[in-house]
Design a protein around this nucleic acid. Structure first.
Lengths: 166, 166
DNA sequence: ATTGGTGCAAAAATTTTGCAATAGA
DNA sequence: TCTATTGCAAAATTTTTGCACCAAT
């Protein structure tokens, strides 16, 4: 299942990717836009959003959902975990890698988490449901397994688009 | 650190809680609004949003961020994990509980996941960062540890509110 | 009586999209 | 040339909020 269309390498896409890769703060689309604009003053916010989606779908970056409407992005594709603050939404990388085995993770958690008061965790498996698989929908880049990346084109009962009320 | 204000028990709040508890589909605010409206036709969407935030902050429900701007809610407070479809955003409960130990989880994953094609997982620890702790910000209800629940009142560099551009 | 909560409507915030023009392959 | 991509602006979507009134304690 190769890509339907040939993607072009534009300056905007390059710079957006570079800025996401360069950042260590898991920036929002807005923050990325500002960074990119300092290098490409005429770039539009729409272009940033479109390219963030493309890059995430390609597996070049990660789209993060830190428990609020505003998405964040991560250019670090090495296996790692995140620490999210429930108050300010800040996301930091944990000094634990996703390749540590679960026992190590739990054993080492306490010692690594002196700067945060931890009171829980979330573990979520990500994949493709039977219905979507039946429609021929497959996997994105193996590292870009954040939900929602390319769901917007789909017509399914879980998409709420186009149902606004006054 | 007791609550600053005494909360009242309103019919709207009751019904909203009941509907979230009753649902097994991790509904959106919109879907909850529709359900509640069938019982309280004059309820407003703002009231639904306000009460979902209150209920989540109280730990009565969970606010879920399935990788897209639209939040979902979960009235099931028993320890459990979720399965998210990257395409349609659907969230289902896993037949694994959060009390299973990590080895059991990994050992049993394959056999339990026959209906989904799984290609990864996300593990995220949630707590309070040093800066927010210094401001006296504490923990919400122990089961409501989804990020972002009460961050909106805070003034911090990670909040992007009030920075719109034309 | 207080004052937290509501309904309503408007606004805010984030994301998406239509379209003509541009530019990469 | 062909068409993916862009800039721009408008729209769409989701969430928040101001305010006068209502209602729980």
């Amino acid at each position: 299942m190769q890509p339907d269309v040939i993607q072009r390498s534009t300056r905007q896409r390059q710079v957006i990717l570079e800025e996401v890769k360069r950042s260590r703060t898991h920036p929002t689309a807005d923050e990325i836009y500002e960074q990119v604009r300092s290098r490409l003053p005429r770039v539009s916010l729409g272009t940033v959003y479109r390219n963030l989606d493309v890059l995430a779908a390609n597996g070049d970056i990660l789209k993060l959902a830190p428990g609020r409407p505003q998405m964040r992005f991560d250019g670090n594709l090495t296996a790692h975990y995140h620490m999210t603050c429930i108050h300010c939404g800040r996301i930091e990388d944990l000094p634990l890698t996703a390749s540590d085995n679960p026992i190590d993770i739990l054993e080492n958690m306490t010692s690594h988490l002196t700067k945060y008061g931890v009171f829980g965790h979330k573990l979520e498996f990500v994949g493709v449901c039977a219905e979507c698989a039946a429609k021929g929908l497959g996997f994105p880049g193996v590292d870009a397994f954040d939900p929602g990346v390319d769901a917007k084109k789909e017509d399914n009962p879980f998409d709420q688009k186009g149902k606004r009320r006054g």
